[in-house]
Amino acid sequence: MKLTAENIQFIDSYLKNSNVIYYDIRMEMLDHVATAVEQKMEAENIDFYEAFKSYMVVNKREILKGNKLWPGFSKDILLNFLKFLLQPIMILIGVSIYVFYKNVEVANYFSESFTFKDFLFVILISLAIFKIVYFRVVLKQRFYMIEKIFGLLNVFYYLQMFFLNQRNNETPSVFTITMFSYLLIAYLIYFTKQVYKFNTYKKQFV
């Protein structure tokens, strides 16, 4: 027995009310529950609400285990990003950045009131602002697949606090600024690649 559009809407609202905020996660859960309820209706010859209720009583906890409330910190993404950093082309970029900083005194291009350290910080903050605009204004729906990538920005933020502390007046070493420039550039490339992949994925949802 196939569920009607109203039935589907009912399950969707139920999941939304259970705090399943990410559209991609909810869509998959919805299909799982709907298929199970359809089979239950057929096997036990009961109506939608009865089948839905008895299915959820038993399975709700297990189903909602797949829910994510915030992107937070994903170990998989971090490992994936580290693997990406170790690709030969990326290492080449890293080495080029190092050679560049070794030969060019970048601090000369910045003033005392706006140091190179501040510049890196501004880039980091801009990326965070871009993230909010992209999610809230451009996408409208929340997708876990893309939001989890931004967990990396939190890691960079803490690294920055540790290595490029604004209260510390010492000029950072060439190695430190290379590391940060490398991380930010790699992140931009990684992020662009992921957004490209995500866009093909998102198109399927329409």
């Binding site: 589907i8 299909d31 709907a34 998989d76 994936n80 399927q204 949802f205």
Partner: peptide, 16 residues
């Protein structure tokens, strides 16, 4: 995420 599986989304009976 590890690139071992690929995903296809299709509309089936009023849902994706």
């Amino acid at each position: 995420a590890d690139g071992l599986l690929d995903v296809e989304v299709e509309k089936v009976d009023n849902r994706l």
